[in-house]
Amino acid sequence: MTIPIDVETKHRIVVVLLWLAALVALAVLAFIIAVVLWNGLPAVTLSFLLESPRDMGRAGGIFPMVVSTVAVTLLAVIVAAPLGVGTAIYLTEYTSETALTRVIRFGAECLAGVPSIIFGLFGFIFFVIQLGMGWSVLSGGLTLAVMILPTVMRTAEEAIRAVPESFREASFSTGASRWQTVTQVVLPSALPGIVTGVILGVGRGVGETAAVIFTAGSSLHIPTSIFSPARTMAVHFYILAREGISMRHAYGTAAVLVILILAINTAANWLMLRFQAKQG
């Protein structure tokens, strides 16, 4: 039953199929972005960005959600970045492979795989209820911080490992301590890579819904402190779309979100490429 095809033709067919697979993935991405921007951009005006929503979001804008998104994500980064970078420094500069580092790595890998809804449940019971923070920017930010910690940590570790060993040797040979070596030589060299990781973490935080909706809440007001409840753009979009409140405003919010994500990813990529060019 085999049709005689010579190997050369077979090889070509395989190559064409692989190109096709890549194009399909690309097409899906292009389709999603195009749909959201095409339908959403007309709704995005300056007043949409700068006004508060009226009538549950049917009218008005998304200003409080923009503020909430920035506040929650910023808080998450402020907490996660030092922890993630600290972990990376510990793993690369202060210890060799031991049972403990294996446990630390395993924990981070597992944390990276925990679904966002579990973070939502945990954040709700731990930060909102147990620690009495209520639905607030604080609860949401801390929950997100736990969620993006593995991302920050992993990229920071990779960036730090990429710093040439000769830099460390040179530093140590002058009598510098480990910490001086880390702060004076290792971190400055690894900074672009670390920042890339943090930016990727920001991207995850901005787009997150499940972990935030049960921890930051869904108040329509502008948060006035880290103890105020808040509704991020992703949550707002989810509520508008799911409850069918306003298609137009849902699209508008989605467009803002997608543009933000695009910008964040582009920035991260640009930094990464520059970093690699410098290293290579």
Partner: peptide, 28 residues
């Protein structure tokens, strides 16, 4: 298979797919 330039374009594009919020996927 991919030529270097195609790969350098495709790789970030696919990572971008991961960056798109899940609510947007649901919406589409």
């Amino acid at each position: 298979i991919a030529p270097r330039r195609a790969a350098n374009f495709l790789r970030p594009a696919i990572q971008l797919l991961a960056g798109i919020p899940s609510v947007v996927y649901g919406f589409v």
